[in-house]
Design a binder for these strands. Sequence first.
DNA 1: AAAAACCTCAACCGCCCTTCC
DNA 2: AGGAAGGGCGGTTGAGGTTTT
Length: 237
Amino acid sequence: MGRSPCCEKMGLNRGPWTAEEDMTLIAHIERHGHSNWRALPKQAGLLRCGKSCRLRWINYLRPDIKRGNFTSEEEDAIIQLHTMLGNRWSMIAARLPGRTDNEIKNVWHTHLKKRLESSAAPKRKAKKPVAMTATAITQDGPNSAPVQPISSSATDYSMASSYETTESFSPDSQEFQIDDSFWSETLAMTVDCSGSVMEAGDTIVADGASMRSSNADMDFWVQLFMQAGDMQNLPQI
DNA sequence: AAAAACCTCAACCGCCCTTCC
DNA sequence: AGGAAGGGCGGTTGAGGTTTT
């Protein structure tokens, strides 16, 4: 169509978001909302494209995002929905609260598609346990010395944290799940208590590079889950 | 221990759709 | 009615991490 690019590329930051940028974006959206993505970066003082801001918010910073591994139920739902809807990731995501289309798309391409393919045709060899699949997730609890580490990504840290800090995980059960009530409470807490949570988030990255795989990030989620866990017994703030 | 192969996922790109004027 | 602007979506990429050789 020959349209002008969504934003002026010159002088704009690209690549992984820094903690400072995240904080700036979160603070701005909490204060002013995001009625205009294109104008937002300028208003917030971010050297980012509006689309980039939107993507970062939608896929990572939004408080209602459900972090962590997909449960077997969620994976089954994705498979079923994909057979019905095809690659309409946003529609699939709309039926999986807390999950983003990007996340679902990634899981599909990295795990579920392969799983379906391998179930159709016998696989040569498993180089690595399919970390996020239902078998890996539902196998055992975190304290049961799994044969292989589930994964090492930041999201997995968060899941490991949730194992230990919520009532939802039962080491004896074969099924692991985070119920919706937990997430709704977590969401409410994140929104209502944004101040304290964001303080935790302030330590997300020490070197300003990326949130992934940092201990501070793990601490953030541990704190988040612990606070959410505490809220089972405490009145809403 | 080191290199190679493989995996994961955040982020970007470009197109399409909707809304506004 | 039609063009412009903005939002949303799906496909793709590549850096960084993990596992295997």
